[in-house]
Design a protein around this nucleic acid. Structure first.
Length: 568
RNA sequence: CGGGGCAUAGCGCAGGCUGGUAGCGCGUCUGCUUUGGGAGCAGAAGGUCGCAGGUUCGAAUCCUGCUGUCCCGACCA
């Protein structure tokens, strides 16, 4: 590609409304332009990157036998009503009405349409298993779109769906798809982790997420320092800990703690470490009565774990102050298990605690010397808290480290949630109707472009991994307008490199060297060749890799160049 | 949806308090000179100051409403 024809639109200045580096660099490099909140146009330069990602994804999907299709972006409401998601999706779904007042949505995902498609054609076990995928634009009306493409409302996603006669075959395909994702990310050369995940609103059993590691990542990942355990912090287990609970040594004693409503203030007031205190959180139960959740003072509640507790309302709802006062006689900050008949669920970390500090259910008072069994019946113990750095790893090897990640892929074993709701049924070998098991597998095509930049950039701009770069190599002429030799050498190299299958850019824009170098670095081309009279006289070109500190040389012929850039 | 910003030339910003000819930098265009890290000189184009009302002789500026957008929170592949 001749850069004079690419409509490059780079800028020196960083747009004011771009917060994270990938958003800033994509705007500066002219890869995308904002149309509205969470809506972006991809420029010719950006499209080159997007297409490279799509190509890798498509190749790996095809390689595991997934079949490409393309479903409508606009979907009738009826299908969504059948699975109940027309109501449960809420405002995330962009809804619209046609001229006949029929209701539609712009698809935020495609389980319903996919299942319906299979239902029309698949009748026999002989037609399964089958895996379909598409690369398509989704729209999710995010409450708060942000960070450019990282959390856009309209985005490009590869979504795949598989159908199976039984869960063993689903598990097999799940592993196959997981392997394809590993190969996709390996080919892209990104540093990533696979973590156990909560399956969230989509439902289903086993699920794992693929995260590109980056400091700006929105997700926290709990990863074992020595073992293989890795989980999204939302789903990461904590280890109960072993040993016996010490015997009580102190009497239950009420103490005045006026104005003390936070753990930090309580610990300071009593001159004890925060882990010697406890915190009480009141959530609504399934029967409209509240449930008291108790954690060690220095721990934080994992709301997903809390929501899954038997007896706790879904979605998790914090009790308001009026409800709390009605049941406890005190406000938040002084709550505890003593003298209540409210159901108590305590985190494992409190199971081995003795002589605890708990709220007294009187404003401005706490108890010290609280002991389970003696001062309150043994509560139900459960895993309620967020895992923290330094915790023992659940797999028994090493401790937990917290990493930040950007979720770019998610694989689920869905089970029969959608096939059952949409009455998909096929006949097995014995002629019995079976509801197929489904898997679904998402991959954020546009998001991974941003994620790659978050992981791969420097002060000068983007440092694409080779597989994602808009061009592999750029030819930069020096004083081309003065030197026929420079022009001829550039043209010859450009033609020969193209013929050799190298994705080469030729900067024929006639700019001064500075802007050409700056643009090449900003848009992140991995290899650069500089053609000048003084090099031509020596039969050499200047070569510099995007990450190199210094320029080197390479002979001015295609074989030498190919060797230099690892394409020999 | 709650809280907080912002909206003036293609981009980044000043001006606003104290109402009176709309400015700066970058970019763009023309000419000449330049050509190894975002050139110099000279000239030029480009703005219903987000929208709608109001106050006023007069509004970018003051008042009211609306819209858009960004940030924090809850939510989320």
């Amino acid at each position: 590609m001749r850069l004079s024809r690419l409509a490059l639109a780079t800028t020196k200045e960083t747009p004011a409304d771009a917060e994270i580096v990938s958003h800033q660099l994509m705007l500066r490099a002219g890869m995308i332009r904002k149309l509205g909140a969470g809506l972006y146009t991809w420029s010719p330069l950006g499209m080159r990157v997007l297409r490279k990602v799509e190509t890798i994804v498509r190749e790996e999907m095809d390689a595991i036998g997934a079949l490409e299709i393309l479903m409508p972006a606009v979907q009738p409401a009826e299908l969504w009503q059948q699975t109940g998601r027309w109501d449960t999706m809420g405002d995330l779904m962009l809804r619209m009405t046609d001229r006949a007042e029929r209701e539609y949505c712009f698809g935020p995902t495609h389980e319903e349409v996919m299942t319906d498609f299979v239902k029309r054609d698949v009748r026999s076990y002989k037609q399964l298993p089958a895996t379909y995928y598409q690369i398509q634009t989704k729209f999710r009306d995010e409450i708060r779109p942000r960070f450019g493409l990282m959390r856009a409302r309209e985005f490009l996603m590869k979504d795949a769906y598989s159908f199976h006669m039984d869960s063993d075959d689903l598990a097999r395909e799940y592993q196959s798809m997981r392997g394809a994702y590993v190969r996709i990310l390996d080919r892209m050369g990104l540093d990533y982790r696979i973590v156990a995940a909560d399956s969230g609103a989509i439902g289903g059993a086993k699920s794992e997420e693929f995260h590109v590691l980056a400091q700006s990542g929105e997700d926290a990942l709990a990863v074992s320092s020595e073992g293989s355990y890795a989980a999204n912090i939302e789903a990461a287990m904590t280890v109960p800990g072993d040993g016996e609970r010490p015997a009580p040594t102190r009497e239950l004693k009420k103490i005045d703690t006026p104005g003390v409503t936070t753990i930090a203030a309580l610990a300071a007031h009593l001159d004890v470490p925060t882990e010697a205190t406890s915190k009480a959180i009141v959530v609504m139960g399934e029967d409209a009565r509240p449930v008291l959740l108790m954690l060690r003072g220095d721990h934080t509640l994992n709301e997903i774990k809390a929501e899954k507790l038997d007896g706790v309302a879904t979605p998790l709802t914090m009790a308001d102050e009026a409800t709390i006062r009605a049941h406890f006689g005190a406000g938040p900050g002084s709550l505890g298990p003593v003298n209540t008949n409210i159901a108590v669920v305590a985190d494992h970390a409190l199971a081995k605690a003795a002589d605890m500090v708990v709220g007294a259910n009187y404003d401005g008072a706490h108890f010290t010397g609280f002991n389970w069994g003696r001062d309150h019946p043994e509560p139900r113990f459960a895993d309620l808290r967020n895992v923290e750095a330094g915790d023992a790893s659940p797999d028994g090897h090493g401790h937990i480290q917290i990493l930040r990640g950007i979720e770019v892929g998610h694989v689920f074993q869905l089970g029969d949630k959608y096939s059952r709701a949409l009455e998909l049924s096929v006949l097995d070998e014995d002629g019995r109707a079976v509801t197929p098991q489904m898997g679904c597998y998402g991959f954020g095509v546009s998001r991974i472009v941003a994620a790659a930049i978050e992981q791969c950039h420097d002060d000068a701009g983007i440092r694409w991994p080779m597989a994602m770069a808009p061009f592999e190599l750029v030819i930069v002429p020096i004083k081309a307008d003065k030197s026929a030799a420079v022009r001829e050498t550039c043209e010859r190299l450009y033609d020969e490199l193209k013929a050799a299958g190298i994705d080469v850019a030729y900067d024929d824009r006639g700019l001064r060297p500075g802007p050409m170098f700056a643009d090449a670095e900003l848009i992140g081309i991995p290899h650069r060749l500089v053609v000048s009279d003084r090099g031509i006289e020596a039969g050499m070109l200047e070569y510099r890799g995007r990450g190199d500190a210094e320029s080197g040389e390479v002979a001015a012929d295609v074989a030498a160049i190919r060797q230099k850039i690892g394409r020999g």
